[in-house]
Computed example of a mutant assay.
Amino acid sequence: MYSNGYNVYKNNAVNYASKEQLLLMLVEGAVKFCKIARQAIIDKDVKKAHNALIRTQDIFSELMISLDTSVGDWAVQLFNVYAFIKEKLVEANMSKKLEIIDEILPLIEDINETWKEAYVRAKK
């Protein structure tokens, strides 16, 4: 009963979110799934790690697709950062090496914080 209500709430949150809010949801999801993958690698749960890494890769694919690189050099540079992260996620998924996750997780967290800050500043 409660999980159905939660799913309705979650769907409504996505369906009625602004583009900026959707971006924040994506980058927060990237942090979440990367952390899940990290723990799954520690726990030697290959399937869970794979699924979480795929979800994180999908998020970065979506971020790359939605980025308008014609607006300036900063967008091209951000696209390249996203591509680097995605490449490392693929590498981490193939090797299940914790070191790769530890290399990119701080970068993903920085991106999350940067977009949060940009959202707050844009609201002022």
Rank of each mutant, 00 (worst) to 15 (best):
S3K: 14
S3V: 14
Y6M: 15
Y9A: 15
Y9H: 08
K10S: 14
K10N: 07
N12D: 09
A13H: 01
A17F: 05
S18Y: 06
L22S: 00
L23M: 13
L24Y: 04
L24V: 07
L24G: 02
M25Q: 06
M25T: 06
M25F: 12
A30Y: 01
A30P: 00
V31N: 04
K32D: 07
F33V: 01
C34W: 03
I36R: 09
A37R: 02
A37T: 03
A37K: 05
R38C: 02
R38Q: 09
Q39E: 12
Q39I: 11
I42K: 11
D43K: 10
D43I: 08
K44G: 01
D45W: 04
V46W: 10
V46T: 11
K48S: 10
A49T: 07
N51L: 12
N51G: 11
L53D: 01
T56A: 11
T56I: 04
Q57F: 01
D58I: 06
I59A: 07
S61Y: 04
L67S: 08
D68T: 03
T69Q: 10
S70E: 12
S70W: 05
W74M: 15
V76N: 05
L78D: 00
F79V: 01
N80P: 00
N80C: 08
V81R: 10
V81A: 06
Y82M: 05
Y82H: 01
Y82C: 06
A83V: 07
F84A: 00
K86R: 14
E87Y: 08
K88T: 00
K88P: 00
E91C: 05
A92E: 01
N93L: 07
M94N: 15
M94A: 13
S95W: 04
K97S: 12
L98W: 07
E99M: 11
I100F: 02
E103G: 04
P106C: 05
I108V: 10
D110H: 12
N112W: 06
T114Q: 12
T114D: 04
T114L: 08
W115C: 08
W115D: 00
E117M: 14
A118E: 08
A118T: 08
Y119L: 10
R121G: 03
A122Q: 09
A122E: 12
